[in-house]
C-alpha cells in the first residue's frame, strides 16, 4: 500500500518516551472532556427554572430574540398561496375558549399603558373596515404546517386608523382572551407588519368558535402559539408583557418565524 504525503502533514515526530507522555496527557484530557460534557449537560438540566426553562437555556432564547429582533426586516414576506392550495385546519388548543361566546355582543377592548380604556370595537365595526385576504402557511411549534386562507382587517391599518399615537409611543402589546386565561405578548414590529391580521374569516367563512371566533390574530411572523384566538383585550405596553401563556411555560417568548 503506497501512501502519498498528507495534504496537511506537519512531519512532526515523537520518540517512544514522548509518545507515552503524550498518550497519558491525551487520556487525561479526554477523560476530563467526557466528564465536563456529562456534568455540563446535567448542570444545564438542573439549573433553576426561569419561566419553566433552565435559566441558561432561557438566556439562549433571549439571546436569540436579541439577535433576530436586530436582524428583523419589515420588508420580509412569508410566501402566499392560491386559495385552491389552502384547506381547513385542525383545531389545536382550546385555552381561553371555555365560556360560551356570543359574537353579536362581543366587544374588543383597547387599553392604554395605565389600564385606561381607549376604545371598544364590535365585530360589526371590524366588518365595516377594509378586508384583506392572506393565504399563508400556518406553522405550529409541534412541527406541522398547513396552508390556510385568513380574511380580516390588517392590524397595521387598524392601529394606524384608531391608535397611531399609541403605536408610536409603545413597544409592545399584551393580548388576552375575554376570560384572561390565554395571553400573548407581541412586539410592535410584528403587530405593524403587512402580513399581520385581525382575522375574522378562515377559508372564506366566519371563524368558528374553536378557531377563535369572533376575532383572532393571524400572522406568519409567529408560531401558532402567538396567534391568539378570541381576542378580548389588546393592551399597549412599554415593557415586554409578563404572563405570555406558552412563554411562561418553557417556550421562547419571541417564537418568531
Amino acid at each position: 500500500m503506497s501512501r502519498e504525503p498528507e495534504a496537511d502533514a506537519t512531519g512532526r515526530t515523537l520518540t517512544e518516551a514522548q509518545f507515552k507522555k503524550r498518550s497519558r496527557r491525551s487520556l487525561l484530557t479526554g477523560l476530563a472532556g467526557i466528564a465536563a460534557t456529562g456534568f455540563g449537560l446535567r448542570w444545564i438540566d438542573n439549573r433553576p427554572l426561569d419561566a419553566r426553562a433552565p435559566d441558561v437555556l432561557r438566556a439562549g432564547h433571549e439571546t436569540n430574540e436579541a439577535i433576530w429582533r436586530r436582524l428583523f426586516r419589515d420588508g420580509s414576506r412569508a410566501p402566499e398561496f392560491a386559495f385552491s392550495e389552502s384547506s381547513m385546519m385542525r383545531v389545536n388548543g382550546r385555552h381561553g375558549l371555555d365560556d360560551e361566546i356570543d359574537v353579536d355582543t362581543w366587544e374588543m377592548s383597547i387599553v392604554g399603558v395605565d389600564g385606561e380604556l381607549l376604545g371598544t370595537h364590535t365585530l360589526a365595526d371590524l366588518r365595516d373596515l377594509p378586508q384583506q385576504e392572506l393565504i399563508v402557511e400556518h406553522k405550529c411549534v409541534e412541527g406541522w404546517s398547513h396552508v390556510v386562507a385568513w380574511g380580516g382587517v390588517s392590524m397595521a391599518d387598524f392601529m394606524t386608523r384608531f391608535y397611531p399615537d399609541q403605536v408610536e409611543a409603545h413597544g409592545f402589546v399584551d393580548i388576552t382572551t375575554p376570560d384572561s386565561e390565554y395571553r400573548v405578548g407581541l412586539e410592535m414590529d410584528a403587530i405593524m407588519h403587512a402580513q399581520t391580521l385581525l382575522a375574522l374569516d378562515l377559508q372564506r367563512e366566519p371563524l368558528d368558535a374553536e378557531h377563535g371566533a369572533p376575532v383572532r390574530l393571524a400572522t406568519p411572523l409567529k408560531y401558532g402559539i402567538k396567534q391568539i384566538k378570541r381576542i378580548g383585550t389588546i393592551a399597549f405596553s412599554d415593557v415586554q408583557p409578563e404572563g405570555d401563556y406558552w412563554g411562561s411555560r418553557g417556550y421562547d417568548w419571541y417564537a418568531a418565524l
Partner: peptide
C-alpha cells in the same frame, strides 16, 4: 532526550479538537 523517532503526527491539533467537540454538539442537536 534522544531516541529513535517512532511516531508521526497524523491528525493536527485543530482537527482533533473540533472533531471531538463536534461529537457531543451533534449528539445534543
Amino acid at each position: 532526550m534522544s531516541g529513535e523517532r517512532i511516531a508521526i503526527e497524523k491528525h493536527r491539533r485543530g482537527n482533533r479538537w473540533m472533531h471531538w467537540i463536534n461529537f457531543p454538539l451533534l449528539a445534543v442537536m
